[in-house]
Structure formats: C-alpha cells, structure tokens
Design a binder for these strands. Structure first.
Length: 270
DNA sequence: CTCCAGGTCCAGA
DNA sequence: TCTGGACATGGA
C-alpha cells in the first residue's frame, strides 16, 4: 500500500540514531519492525510505499506523522547558526518507539558507535528473541547468563543490561511510572538503572517516552554547541543541557535531533 | 599498531 | 562540583 506523508523525511528520521533495528538496502528501502509487525518502507516525494500488514494507524503513530513541525522550524529559524538545518533536514521527526527497546538500546550506546550498536541489536534479536528481527523482551534477556551477553558483543555493558532487564521484567509498572512522571522525576527514575547516566537518561526519555524537554549531550552535540554558542570554550555537558532547556524549552529535544544529525552528516561542521 | 565511538562509574582532589 | 582513568569491542 502507499500512504501520503507530508512534511516527513524517512531517511533523516531513520538514519539519525534514534532507533537501531532498521536496515537500509538499495533504493533507500528500509526493513524493520513496528509494534511487532514486519515492515518494508520507502519514500517517493510525499508518498510512503509500504509492504506490511501493520495497521496504518500504528504507522502514523510510530512516525508521529500528525504532529505539526512548524513550532520546531520556528525555533530553528530563530537561530542564525541553525537556519541551514531546517532546509536540509526538513521532515526529520522523532519516532515514538517502544520504551523498553529505547531503554535497553541506549544502555548499549555508551562509549559505542552506531554501527556496533546495530550489530549488537541484531545479535540480541537473532539469539534471544522468539520473533524474527524483533528486539527481545525484557524477560527474554533477563533469563540468560551475563556470559551470553558478552558473547553477543556487549562487553562491559553486559551486566548493566542484564540487571536492568531483570528489574523491568519483574516490575513492568516502573515503565508506566516513568511515563507518567514529569521530566525531572523521570530522569531520577531512569538514571537509577545501572549504566545509565545523564546523557543516556535523556535519550531514553526523549525517544522512548516522548519527553521533549530532554536534551541528550553526546560528543557531537558537545562539539556543535561549544562551537555555535560558546566560542569553542570548554563547558560542561550539564551546563549545555541547562542552556538548551532554558532556550528551547519543551522542544529542546527536537532541536537536539536536528543539530545531532546535521553535525554527524556534515550539514554543519564541528 | 593506535584511535575512536550517541558515556558511565569510581576515586581523589 | 570537577577531573582523570578504566572499561569491551570492532572498524578505520
């Protein structure tokens, strides 16, 4: 089937480091899973071409296609330094992905690179999930030995993910509590898991829980923000986080996604 | 071989 | 509060 999707950039959305379970093959055709359904998807202008039994409503929700991005563009246009971004990356959207998958994947992301996170994602899916090409449930990870996770390439993050999976599989309500909590409280709850510090916590809350105040500061954002707003002076990640939340408020995380993807793809130089 | 990657944790100032 | 080093692993 095909559905119309205006103001949407599939490639920027799926290649901007929010989610690790999609594979891109020739013709910019992506394969992955959404809400448990296998899906093949590609974009031609304003049309999405989809091969899947996924209900359309779930697709719209996953890519958040009904969101009006004008408030985001207005914030970006207000910034002299960021104006080129809105033009080049227009249609980049934040995905509403599965909270457990976001929590787990960003534990794996620390001091790691996107290629290897994708590799580990596939290893976990192949070895531990009961369903093909789907990230394993917390319980499916919780019952293996730490050694198994190390064999799948997690390295020192193996005990972090294992303990988190064990906790979540026994207390699924904790995900609900994170969702219901205001941002500040949600940070405290997420940061309490092993292997999660301020940066990963913001990623989890932004991508898994739609808390758009979150402003993850990784090495790319650090370099870009230092250059754009602090004359390349050294400044702590916490200061940058506060600066961004004050400046961009409840859409800080959206602005972050544009800066991050722009920096990584060379749209802006860092 | 060395360096780096969507950082976190721990110890010591 | 801030700084320095260790930490697994694979690709460049």
């Amino acid at each position: 089937m095909k559905i119309k999707a205006v103001d949407f950039n599939l490639e920027a959305t799926l290649d901007s480091g929010q989610v690790f379970g999609f594979t891109k093959n020739k013709d910019k055709n992506y394969q992955g899973r959404i809400a448990g359904y296998e899906i093949e998807i590609s974009q031609m202008q304003d049309w999405l071409h989809i091969n899947s039994t996924l209900p359309q409503q779930k697709l719209v929700r996953y890519f958040d296609l009904e969101r009006n991005l004008n408030p985001v563009y207005e914030l970006i246009h207000r910034e002299e330094a960021l104006r080129p971004l809105a033009k080049k990356l227009r249609g980049l959207r934040l995905i509403q992905q599965d909270p457990w998958e976001a929590l787990a994947c960003f534990i794996l992301s620390s001091n790691n690179n996107v290629k290897r996170i994708q590799l580990i994602w596939r290893n976990l899916s192949d070895r531990l999930s009961s369903r093909k090409n789907q990230f394993p449930e917390a319980l499916e990870i919780a019952r293996v030995h730490e050694r198994t996770l190390r064999e799948l390439g997690l390295g020192y993050r193996a005990p972090y993910l294992l303990h988190t999976a064990q906790f979540i599989s026994k207390n699924e309500i904790s995900l609900q509590m994170i969702r219901q909590a205001p941002y500040e409280e949600a940070v405290e709850r997420v940061i309490a898991f092993p292997g999660i510090g301020p940066k990963v916590a913001d990623c989890v809350l932004l991508y898994g829980f739609q808390k758009y105040e979150a402003f993850p500061v990784d090495v790319w954002i650090l370099r870009a923000m230092r250059r754009l707003y602090f004359k390349n002076r050294k400044i702590s990640e916490e200061k940058i986080r506060q600066f961004a939340r004050k400046r961009w408020g409840s859409l800080a995380g959206y602005v972050q996604q544009y800066i991050f993807h722009a920096a990584r793809t060379g749209v802006i130089s860092v």
